[in-house]
């Protein structure tokens, strides 16, 4: 029963993203006097709306390549990989992968990771809220209890490991900062978290990403430290613990009961 309407909708939909297709034949003659420009309002709304949504989600990526390049790149993405969900923010998820394959951006191999960092910021912004752990909860733990303790990390916490200095590049292109030359062009791991209302982006110290990944997977602090040292021999447990506590990355501390605690 809905075949007729479905067919009309299909021809309308197909012509929205492909300007080479004719204007759908189901439109009235009244509009047919000037159907191209009238139908073009819809084409324009769709494309401009999708490009603007990407622009809003990827401001640093846009700043790196410039507005005109970004709009052209976003337009190709929107037409070839249009959104699948009415939650438009999800459309950005495929953008870094697209950038990696986008030939004109090949000279900027770090660009996709900057876009990944911006996706992580969006996710952190919209993630569930959770109160961070009161720092006093860490007081008085003996070393054995500390090694066996597990933590629940904040639901907004995300880690991005990059072969490029992604945090430095992002920071130079976020907000009003003036770009300057990068002294250390080595890899950087980014921590993105929103303990309260503001999303924070930090560069993780050596082994910090492996440490947090292990904690997120449920490892004890001791086991997570072992993983981190395996990842990077310069891993510094004291400094990383201080970061974990100071930056409010944990929401819960679970101490394995020691025999002393269980005894009556």
């Amino acid at each position: 029963m809905t075949a007729a309407f479905s067919a009309i909708q299909a021809s309308f939909a197909d012509a929205l993203l492909d300007a080479d297709r004719p204007v759908p034949g189901a439109l009235t003659l009244q509009a047919a006097g000037a159907p191209r420009k009238r139908f073009a309002v819809y084409r324009n709304n769709v494309i401009v709306g999708l490009v603007e949504a990407l622009r809003a989600q990827f401001p640093a990526t846009e700043k790196i390549v410039g507005g005109e390049f970004f709009a052209a790149m976003a337009r190709v993405y929107a037409v070839t990989q249009p959104p699948r969900s009415p939650i438009l923010l999800h459309h950005g998820n495929g953008f870094p992968g697209f950038i990696e394959q986008f030939e004109p951006a090949a000279e900027l191999p770090y660009l996709a990771d900057v876009a990944r960092l911006e996706i992580a910021r969006t996710r952190a912004y919209h993630a569930a809220d959770a109160p961070t752990l009161d720092p006093s909860r860490w007081e008085g733990l003996d070393p054995a209890a500390l090694v066996g303790a597990r933590v629940t990390l904040h639901p907004s916490l995300q880690i991005l490991r990059s072969l490029y200095p992604v945090v430095t590049i992002w920071a130079m292109n976020a907000g009003d900062a003036e770009p300057s030359s990068i002294e250390d062009s080595g890899p950087e791991d980014a921590l993105i978290v929103r303990p309260d209302l503001d999303v924070q982006v930090r560069r993780l110290p050596a082994g910090g990403a492996a440490f947090l990944h292990a904690l997120a997977a449920g490892a004890s602090l001791g086991d997570a430290a072992t993983s981190a040292i395996a990842d990077h021999p310069e891993f510094d447990l004291t400094a990383n613990l201080a970061g974990l506590i100071g930056a409010g990355l944990a929401t819960e501390l679970h101490c394995t009961p020691t025999p002393k605690d269980i005894a009556p």
Binding site: M1, T2, A4, F5, I8, Q9, A10, F12, A13, L16, L17, A26, Y42, N45, V46, G49, L50, A53, P82, P83, R84, S85, P86, L88
Partner: peptide
């Protein structure tokens, strides 16, 4: 209006014919 067709979300409020069929739908 409609905004999705097939797998795609078009992010716009798109028009439809006003018929007994679309009314019922």
């Amino acid at each position: 209006a409609w905004s999705s067709h097939g797998e795609v979300f078009y992010n716009d409020l798109l028009p439809l014919p006003y018929t007994p069929e679309t009314l019922a739908r």
